[in-house]
């Protein structure tokens, strides 16, 4: 979008001068500019001051009236500050009772009977219910527009390539299926040619069922077998070598099966007998 928010150059320079990182300085300078723009528009900013908030709460209680609003005034904020910003469990329950407005008498969860409040959203989360997530601060960017733009271009590129291919190359369609007429060249789709090639060397039970089954199970087991915690290529030479060997082996089988096998599944050279391969 074109209306990029300007940054407050003064704040930016000051923060850079204080040795803040470029990213933080830019963010704060941006925020400062937005704040100024809002003040210029006459809008009120951010949360109210504690005094205002307390007053508003009192006013709301007055208005609600008669709902058992005992409004237990706790000295919690002051104490909390002294105690390093943490409330003791007693203080917390006192606070909750105060904001529920029933002074810990139980009852109707503090919802006054004669109130113009229609609902009250409240969530009490016990400390044990909070999932502690410990992760490093990472260099992140917004999905929109950065990632979605890349994805959209990739999608367009792949889509156009496919459309061009579909325009110029027609999908094959042979003659009507005839179970009594075995074609000279009889091959599975290319991704199964590795299996068909194995069939030339092993008993079908080994080549067609056991080996592919073992391969799939090995693939699934890979993360449980490979206990090496490092993801760096230089630390996982064995894993990479094994996988590359596996891929090469499989690729070779597919290439041999697809291009170097002809009538009766005999070995042929494609430049002599032609390409016995259909996609």
């Amino acid at each position: 979008m074109s209306d990029e928010v300007q940054i407050d150059q003064e704040v930016y320079d000051r923060l850079i001068g204080e040795g803040k990182s470029e990213r933080i300085a830019r963010a704060k300078a941006k925020a400062a500019a937005v704040r100024q723009a809002k003040v210029a528009e006459g809008a009120s900013l951010g949360p109210k001051s504690p005094e205002d908030a307390a007053k508003a709460l009192e006013a709301a209680k007055e208005k609600a009236g008669g709902g058992g609003g005992v409004a237990t005034k706790t000295a919690a904020p002051a104490e909390a500050q002294a105690g390093g910003g943490r409330l003791t469990p007693e203080e917390r329950s006192a606070r909750v009772a105060a904001s529920l407005g029933n002074g810990g008498n139980g009852g109707s969860m503090g919802v006054p009977t004669s109130s113009d409040h229609t609902h009250r959203l409240l969530a009490l989360v016990p400390p044990a219910g909070i999932q502690q997530v410990q992760s490093k601060q990472m260099d992140k960017v917004y999905t929109w527009p950065h990632l979605l733009l890349v994805e959209f271009v990739a999608l367009l590129a792949a889509g156009s390539l496919l459309l061009i291919a579909a325009f110029f190359l027609d999908a094959p369609l042979g003659s009507l299926a005839n179970p009594n007429e075995v074609p000279a060249i009889n091959k599975a789709p290319w991704y199964f040619m590795g299996l068909q090639e194995l069939l030339a060397y092993f008993h079908p039970m080994v080549a067609g069922v056991t080996l592919p089954g073992v391969f799939v199970l090995l693939l699934m087991a890979a993360p449980y077998v490979d206990k090496n915690p490092s993801a760096k290529p230089e630390n996982r030479k064995v894993a990479n070598l094994a996988f590359t060997f596996f891929l090469t082996f499989w690729g070779l089988l597919v290439i041999i099966g697809s291009f170097l096998r002809g009538a009766g599944y005999a070995w042929v050279w494609p430049w002599v007998q032609g390409l016995g391969f259909t996609l």
Partner: peptide, 10 residues
């Protein structure tokens, strides 16, 4: 077609 039938037979 023939291609389909015999590939699947394999």
């Amino acid at each position: 077609d023939q291609l389909a039938l015999w590939a699947v037979t394999v």
